[in-house]
Design a protein around this nucleic acid. Structure first.
Length: 489
RNA sequence: GCGGAAGUAGCUCACCUGGUAGAGCGACAGCUUCCCAAGCUGUAGGUAGCGGGUUCGAGUCCCGUCUUCCGCUCCA
């Protein structure tokens, strides 16, 4: 465990030192739980994104993608349950360190009084509470708690912190007249990307002539004002989700839930990190919208943690959007129901969701591929740090290196660059010894290096050096592009 | 949010009981032309997280603040 913790620290350092991940606005001391992706990090992230997007939208003919806005109509979040579930004022007892929802605390007190026969007090307290909650009068609520000497069940004391609102959604003002008091102007930064898909369900279904079952995929940013956000990019306030909502007939959710569990696991395994790095974790306590849910957990250096969620969301979201918007969210199914011999007809589809955190996927790839190797021999101490990325995900695919920077070798190397750079990302370097240049490429995870040497001038062959094995082969110049292309496909 | 620890050059760290910052690695330029880092020469880079206080004088003591790490708590 101690070693894994050190490994995690080493990965964070490496990520910063080699341009993968920087703390946000670092020159101003950073911003808690916000990070920026650097020159190689953004490439890696993009490659992960593309890999997911392509496998979703190309490999499944019944899945299409959209890109919805981050801002959504405020009612969206009422329908989704986010406004009700994440707006609770909380209070902490300073002695027991226990945190309570203010309404629960006061209701508990009223209940006690009622049992003791103080019916009048109970009713009065509850009435006051409702009035104060409606006004968001936290000072008044605190006074109510103090005046009635409401105690903590654990510590038995009445030593309370101030009341604070823990709203997991970020909000901002919308429109030309800015008035922070005006609830009508308040818009949220989406706390999940899913709702952008749900509100577009019929648009996509009708214009794309989609037939159930079908899926809508989306990659985009989401924002959550986490109370405690830590562990590097594992839990961030601004993060990116890659998710797909799969619309199905009611009653078939069990089958599709199992189907997507399997499909998503296959996708992860296709990266070749090994089966033992993943496991399923079934949710016992289900979210307000789900009738079955599990996570795919990955073996991070900080332990097995959630990487992707697969949820059977029932018709919770579409049904609520129908209710709040007063617009029918149903689908007419022309397929014949074998039970009745007639079409299935109108229904609100059920949904199975697969939702993966892009930043977590990035961390999974980075931490799994990070390796420190001891290459010491009897004569000499030696070690290298490398990122053994699958070639298709590597930020840089090929380094082109002249063995020395004279005798016409740079010119040959430049020619190779010109031949390859339109096909994939290449890196040219002539400074320092060849060994040092190889090691620098290992550190950012470049899978291939080709070196032009004096023999190249005679027979047009170069050496290609493989990152993982450090072995070299001599190949013809014309083969370079082809070999790399094959590896990244 | 609570408790604990830390914050000095890109990185790792040093400066003992207060007297206006050093090393190694790295980076850059040049030499070397060498197929797996640490050969030679040179250069750049820090007002010690930030703010305040004590003092003739603070990186060094005190307070506040921000950030990070560890533990607890939380995580629809």
């Amino acid at each position: 465990m101690a070693n894994d913790q050190n490994k995690f620290q080493a990965i964070i350092s490496h990520a910063k030192e080699y341009g993968f991940v920087f703390p946000s606005s670092e020159i101003y001391d950073g911003l808690q739980a916000v990070y920026d992706y650097g020159q190689w990090g953004s490439e890696l992230k993009k490659n992960i994104k593309d890999y997911w997007w392509d496998s979703m939208t190309r490999m499944y003919e019944n899945i299409v993608g959209i890109d919805a806005a981050i801002f959504m109509h405020p009612t969206t979040w009422k329908a989704s349950g986010h406004v009700d579930n994440f707006n609770d004022p909380m209070i902490d007892n300073k002695d027991s360190k226990k945190r309570y929802r203010v309404d629960h605390l006061i209701e508990g007190f009223a209940e006690e009084q009622r049992e003791k026969g103080n019916e009048q007090l109970a009713t009065s307290v509850l009435e006051q509470m409702d009035a104060l909650l409606a006004k968001d009068d936290f000072a008044g609520l605190k006074k109510l708690i103090d005046d009635n000497r409401i105690k903590c069940a654990v510590s038995g004391t009445s030593d309370w912190t101030d009341i604070r609102q823990f709203n997991l959604m970020f909000s901002t003002e919308f429109g030309s007249t800015i008035s922070s008091d005006d609830e009508d102007n308040k818009v949220y930064l989406r706390p999940e990307t899913a709702q952008g898909i749900f509100v577009n369900f019929l648009n996509v279904q009708k214009t794309g002539r989609m037939k159930i079952p079908f899926g809508i995929a989306q990659i985009g940013k989401a924002f959550r004002n986490e109370i405690v956000a830590r562990q590097f990019i594992f839990r961030m306030r601004e993060f990116e989700q890659m998710e797909m909502q799969f619309f199905i007939q009611p009653g078939t959710q069990k089958k599709w839930y199992e189907y997507w569990k399997e499909e998503r696991m296959k996708w992860h395994l296709s990266l070749g990190f090994g089966k033992e790095q993943y496991r399923f974790h079934d949710h016992i306590k289900l979210a307000h919208y789900a009738d079955a849910a599990c996570d795919i957990e990955f073996n991070f250096p900080i332990g097995f943690k959630e990487l992707e969620g697969i949820h059977s969301r029932t018709d919770f979201d579409l049904k609520n959007h129908q209710e709040y918007s007063k617009k029918k969210q149903q689908y007419f199914d022309n397929d014949i129901d074998p039970a009745t011999g007639k079409p299935y007809g109108n229904y609100i589809p059920y949904v199975v969701e697969t939702s993966i955190g892009l930043d977590r996927m990035f961390l999974a790839v980075l931490s799994h591929c990070y390796e420190e190797q001891d290459l010491s021999t009897a004569e000499k101490q030696d070690s290298r740090t490398m990122l053994k990325f699958p070639p298709r995900l590597a930020p840089m695919k090929l380094a082109v290196l002249p063995l020395v920077k004279k005798d016409g070798l740079p010119e040959i190397a430049r020619k190779i660059m010109d031949d390859c750079k339109s096909s994939f990302r290449c890196f040219y370097e002539e400074k320092d010894t060849i060994g040092k240049r190889y090691r620098r490429m290992d550190a950012i995870g470049t899978p291939f290096c080709v070196t032009a040497d004096h023999q190249t001038k005679e027979d047009n062959t170069v050496t290609i050096r493989y990152r993982d094995t450090m072995l070299q082969e001599r190949i013809h110049l014309d083969k370079v592009r082809e070999i790399v292309m094959k590896a990244i496909q």
